Simulated scan of single mutants.
Amino acid sequence: MRSVVAVVGPTGSGKSELGIALAHALNGEVINADSMQFYRGMDIGTAKLAPAERGGVPHHLLDILDVRDEASVAAYQSQCRAAIDDVRSRGRLPILVGGSGLYLRAALDELEFPGTDAQVRSRLEEELERAGSEAMRRRLQAVDPVSAERLNDDRRLIRALEVHEVTGRPFSSFMPQRRYHQPAVQLGLSVDREKLRLRLAERVHAMAAAGLLEEVRALENEGLRDGRTAARALGYSQFLAVLDGTWSEADAVEDTIAATRRFVRRQLTWFRGDPRVQWLDWEDPELVARSVEAVNRSHRLS
């Protein structure tokens, strides 16, 4: 079996372009692994390639959710693996492209998802409102100290408590292992951080000039504020504040740049922590050829 290919790395590093080049070189099709590009209408702020920019390469799992919908890693695992099988059934190479680390791990690695219980979650959320984050964190510490140490936001804290109550197992026991579900090769784009910082600033300014505020205004009418995932996306939460009159557009741009840079640091930490990623220089003039060779080498070894 030919390996699944994943092009990974930080926002703004050129993953989309490399994915298309590899698809042309290796008879492949692209499968989206950017959780914000699941959303219909979230185009400018996610740097989603327009159909005319996709080089004639089929792209899968773009525009599959409304902005009111909540993205689900478990649902993505099922959808992505089905897309991989579909691409393979036509004799083509599946190429995952994106920077959403947990979604990529769900697609590529052996990863079990614990069940959910809406009533338990609702009760825990009410307890959070009454008791506060620290009290709930102490409760989690007693049953799952690993998760209590790792989780930094209330939503994931509640999820960890819910999982323990529903399954009797600590949430940390469900964390992904670095063991591929099927043969895979991950190609990571290694960046010059200062150059990327400048590129990200330019990109956010370009998004604003291209009409990000108008895109957010249109999505607000479709329920963007009701979406638990979409409304928190980089750029979208900031430009909602512009619509509220609490920020200027310049404020939103600067905060989006700062938030994007913080996100990139988290992405780099995530992907650098996986020793299986093969890193390639994003500015290498032979990037495509070296990427093709890395994929072919993995096929020879598998």
Rank of each mutant, 00 (worst) to 15 (best):
S3F: 02
S3R: 07
A6H: 01
A6L: 03
V7W: 04
V7M: 01
G12P: 07
G12C: 08
G14T: 05
A21K: 10
L22S: 08
A23F: 05
L26Q: 07
N27P: 01
V30R: 05
V30N: 00
Q37M: 14
F38E: 15
Y39E: 14
M42G: 09
I44D: 11
G45Q: 11
A47S: 15
K48E: 12
K48F: 10
L49K: 14
P51Q: 04
A52M: 08
R54I: 09
G55S: 11
P58H: 09
L61Y: 14
L62Q: 08
D63M: 03
R68D: 12
D69H: 15
D69S: 15
E70N: 11
S72V: 11
A75P: 13
Y76C: 09
Q77M: 14
S78L: 13
C80R: 13
R81P: 15
A83F: 12
I84C: 08
D86M: 13
L93I: 09
G98K: 03
G99R: 04
S100P: 07
L102I: 09
D109C: 00
T116N: 09
T116W: 05
Q119K: 09
V120L: 12
V120M: 13
V120K: 15
E125G: 10
E127W: 10
E129H: 13
E129R: 15
R130A: 11
G132H: 07
S133R: 14
M136K: 14
M136S: 13
Q141W: 04
Q141D: 02
A142I: 06
E149H: 03
E149D: 08
D153A: 03
A160M: 03
L161I: 01
L161F: 00
E162H: 00
V163P: 01
P170Q: 04
P170I: 01
P170M: 05
F171V: 04
S172F: 01
M175H: 08
M175D: 15
R178E: 07
R178N: 07
Y180F: 09
A184G: 00
V185H: 10
L189K: 08
L196K: 05
L198V: 15
L198Y: 13
V204W: 12
H205T: 05
A208W: 04
A209F: 03
A210R: 12
G223V: 05
D226K: 13
A230T: 14
A233C: 11
S237G: 09
F239M: 14
L240T: 07
A241W: 10
G245S: 02
T246N: 03
T246K: 00
S248Q: 06
E249K: 11
D255H: 07
A259E: 03
R262Q: 11
R266H: 03
Q267K: 00
L268Q: 04
F271N: 00
R272E: 06
V277P: 03
Q278F: 02
D281N: 10
P285R: 10
E286Y: 12
V288F: 08
A289D: 13
S291Q: 04
E293N: 03
E293Y: 02
E293V: 02
N296G: 01
H299R: 10
H299P: 00
